[in-house]
Amino acid sequence: MDNFILLIVTILKIILIIVPLLIAVAYLTLAERKVIGSMQARVGPNRVGWRGLAQPFADLFKLLTKEVIVPSSSSRFLFLIAPVLSLAPAFAAWAVVPFSDGLVLADVNAGLLYVLAMTSLGVYGVIIAGWASNSKYAFLGAMRSAAQIVAYEIAMGFALIGVLMMSGSLNLSDIVRAQSGGIGHWFLLPLFPLAVVYFISGVAETNRAPFDVAEGESEIVAGFHVDYSGMAFAVFFLAEYANMIMIAALTAIMFLGGWLSPIDGFGDGFHWFLIKTSLMLFFFLWFRATFPRYRYDQIMRLGWKVFIPVTIVWIAVVGFAIYFNVGPWFQIRSI
């Protein structure tokens, strides 16, 4: 009976995370169009609802009523399961994200590893979609995406090793607590190169502009989801935006002190987490409006030859700083 109640409570908690997340995804699409619109001196969507606020739902209903076409020579099962495979890890990773002190679904000790594992699983949706479509464009997109994600995942993991050394814990809540003491104690300052590498690798992992060669509509039409239509396409879209919010939230947790207020002890709470995540999301949109798409070989060069050496050097720097107890940031934390 106890188990049963636990199950119900957990499912309710999951719904409490997923539903606001879906709404956030819906309004992120609107925010993207509005932000890019104003950056390009346009208005953006403003017809549906008050100032275009109902636009995401109009888009959703349009996609829902469209037909899902399965190409005749595709492998049907994989074709239909690929969007699900790309969405599931994007949601599963939220299980360990601490929204505020103690406000977390699963307070596991290996949270950081879990997040890394889940974000690395998202690539399967893309690869399977590309292969199952049985189309050259989709396949090229999938290949590009696979190589890119494998490359940037290493830089991402190395960047997080710095966080791990500073906080002495893999638990995301403990990582935030290790940054308490005002804005000067956030990991952004001592780990600045790693924070930059992490965020840019995150942009690359989510296949967002300027790293969106997997879609590359000017050369390979729409890449891996060229054959998808209707709701199946919408699920890919959903996964991409959920992943964006995930990366923004993780950057806020690892480097910007999560739920902590910039002034020590002054109104810590969920709202700070929200503000920081929104700020990082704004960077995503800003990037898209500003930078042209990278060429494929330049992406590979940036990942392997720039980011990985930078992270390795900075891990060594952090190691020495902790060993010699360089104040005010570096100290050996008890485990």
Binding site: A117, S120, L121, V123, I127, M143, A146
Partner: peptide, 21 residues
């Protein structure tokens, strides 16, 4: 988690990469 991270997340991706080609 390391099994998922290393084998599923990296090794098998490269494996699929080759097999699909």
């Amino acid at each position: 988690i390391t099994l998922v991270l290393v084998y599923v997340g990296a090794v098998m991706v490269l494996f699929l990469f080759v097999v699909m080609m």
